[in-house]
């Protein structure tokens, strides 16, 4: 049985500074979790630990009942800075992921499959182009296509839309939801953001990290029905109440930090 993602007593320090302290978190398979926190709350670090790019000082991480000991193709990652390889065409950037995830696929089939993923994220016009020819939003679409192409059941997204303008940001949020809702079984998504609206619009659950050191200060279910409609949701009382209580939680943590300093 898949127990999803389990983080058990995670501590992490860097240069004698405690970044994360006592993180306990269980995310069932198929859940869309947003990790919300101010900068310096260690939310990106937490995601890097799950990705296997860094290792905790103490504690255990496992995904699908297997301990996380390094990066693996069962976990796809989308970073904030468009980390496509600039020297490869967009389609090659996707095809290389397919080649690693399913090496038995023939070269021509990899390219065909890569094209399908690009169409899926609305990038059919950019298939033969290079990253430098694309806008920020298009590059991030390509990064999403690459993460999807890996076929991993767990998707880690580190402020993927942080550098985008509001219009593109909203479009890509809808794209992620659309892809996630259409798939069966649903992928597990851990989505890091510092934008409260984004966290509430996307997540089944918002996990809030406090700062210095990073630790979980709230873990709230977000029970709005799926196939959410942006405008009516943002205007609803329930949304406002939840938004208000999250803002209070974050403000209380900032105050606590100031008092401690």
């Amino acid at each position: 049985m898949n127990h999803g993602l389990v983080l058990d007593g995670i501590d992490f320090s860097y240069d004698a500074t405690t970044i994360l302290q006592g993180i306990n978190l269980t995310i069932p398979a198929g859940q869309f979790v947003t990790l919300l926190g101010a900068s310096g709350s260690g939310k990106s670090t937490l995601l890097r630990l799950v990705a296997g790019l860094q290792f905790p000082e103490r504690g255990r991480l496992s995904w699908s009942d297997a301990p996380i000991t390094g990066p693996g193709l069962n976990r796809g990652v989308v970073f904030q800075d468009y980390a496509l390889f600039p020297w490869m065409s967009v389609v090659d950037n996707i095809a290389i992921a397919i080649g690693k995830a399913r090496p038995e696929t023939a070269k021509s089939a990899r390219l065909a499959e890569a094209r399908e993923y690009l169409v899926k994220v609305g990038l059919e016009s950019a298939i033969g182009k290079y990253p430098f020819e694309l806008s920020g939003g298009m590059r991030q679409r390509a990064a999403i296509a690459r993460a999807l192409a890996l076929g991993s059941p767990l998707l880690l997204m580190d402020e993927p839309f942080g550098a985008l303008d509001p219009v593109n940001r909203a479009r890509l949020q809808d794209l992620v939801l659309e892809i996630w809702e259409a798939a069966t079984p649903r992928k597990t998504i851990v989505f890091v953001t510092h934008d409260v609206d984004e966290a509430l619009y996307l997540g089944d659950r918002v996990v809030i990290l406090g700062s210095t050191p990073g630790r979980i200060i709230a873990d709230l279910p977000v029970e709005f029905t799926r196939h959410r409609e942006r405008r009516s949701l943002f205007n609803s009382d329930e949304f406002h109440q939840l938004r208000e209580s999250i803002a209070e939680t974050l403000a209380a943590d900032t105050l606590r930090q100031l008092v401690a300093a």
Partner: peptide, 12 residues
Amino acid sequence: ERYRDNARILGL
């Protein structure tokens, strides 16, 4: 670092 991270994520 971002290229190194990406290569590791992709298992290169």
